[in-house]
């Protein structure tokens, strides 16, 4: 067998990663679980927040936090779904037996998850504008987009990592929220403050950038952690 250069290895890895991501998105597209169940769930959560708070001015003020909370509740369902597909028929074992590297699997699943989360957050921001009277200030658009990307990626990596941990175990439905919610607290704090700044709910746009930075650091840390730890977690 000829020696493979690092570049070949990288391009093969990236090819596999893309395949996994595409497969996850294709499964989602064919089953439409996210579209028909998770997105409406997030929408109804936003409406229920409205009932619980019942104060238009307060709602506008706390809309960014509610958007992130609804995203996190939906994240739990999306992660369950993402790994339920893997444990059925031993798909995960089959992939590992076929020699798919665990890091490619982690990245592929994270990318697919991030895409779904990004779509969900976009929907929730639109809902906040419609239901809570939020507005986006023009100067905050770049911050909003940066936070949107960083939060989606951070939540997707950490969700995939902990989803892999609980995959295939009995009682995972109840265990995942307990494991995942404490871990995503920094994203809730950081992304809420950054979105508040972008929407003009509190402070200036410049105040929001350090919070965006916090979310980006979180995403980087768990992306690195997941790349290393996903293998030992799913090999059984």
């Amino acid at each position: 067998m000829s020696e493979r250069s690092p570049r070949d290895i990288m391009s093969a890895w990236w090819h596999t990663t893309r395949l996994i991501a595409k497969r996850d998105l294709l499964v989602e597209w064919r089953s439409r679980i996210a579209l028909n169940q998770v997105f409406p769930f997030a929408g109804i959560v936003m409406v229920m927040f409205g009932f619980a708070i019942d104060d238009t001015r307060l709602m506008e003020r706390i809309a960014p936090g509610l958007i992130m909370l609804a995203t996190m509740f939906s994240l739990l369902i999306l992660v369950q779904r993402s790994f339920a597909v893997e444990s059925e028929d031993g798909a995960l074992d089959a992939l590992r037996t076929a020699g798919v590297s665990s890091s490619a699997l982690f990245w592929g699943k994270s990318i697919a998850m991030a895409a779904q989360l990004a779509a969900l957050e976009a929907l929730l921001i639109v809902l906040a504008i419609l239901l809570y009277g939020s507005t986006i200030r023009p100067s905050g658009v770049v911050l909003l987009i940066a936070t949107w990307l960083a939060a989606s990626w951070g939540l997707a990596t950490v969700g995939t990592l902990y989803g892999g941990l609980a995959a295939g175990a009995r009682g995972r439905e109840t265990l995942l929220p307990l494991l995942l919610l404490p871990v995503v607290a920094p994203v809730l704090i950081g992304a809420t403050r950054a979105v508040e700044a972008a929407l003009g709910a509190r402070g200036s746009v410049a105040d929001g950038w350090p919070w965006m930075g916090l979310v980006a650091v979180f995403a980087a840390v768990f992306c690195a952690g997941g790349t290393l730890a996903f293998g030992p977690l799913i090999d059984e």
């Binding site: 404490p182 607290a185 920094p186 704090i189 840390v221 952690g225 730890a229 030992p232």
Partner: peptide, 21 residues
């Protein structure tokens, strides 16, 4: 074991972000 090491990553992040908050 992996979870215990992830907690080592998580806790400083939580502490830092709550402090900022």
């Amino acid at each position: 074991g992996v979870l215990a090491l992830l907690a080592v990553l998580e806790i400083p992040l939580v502490h830092f972000s709550v402090k900022l908050w």
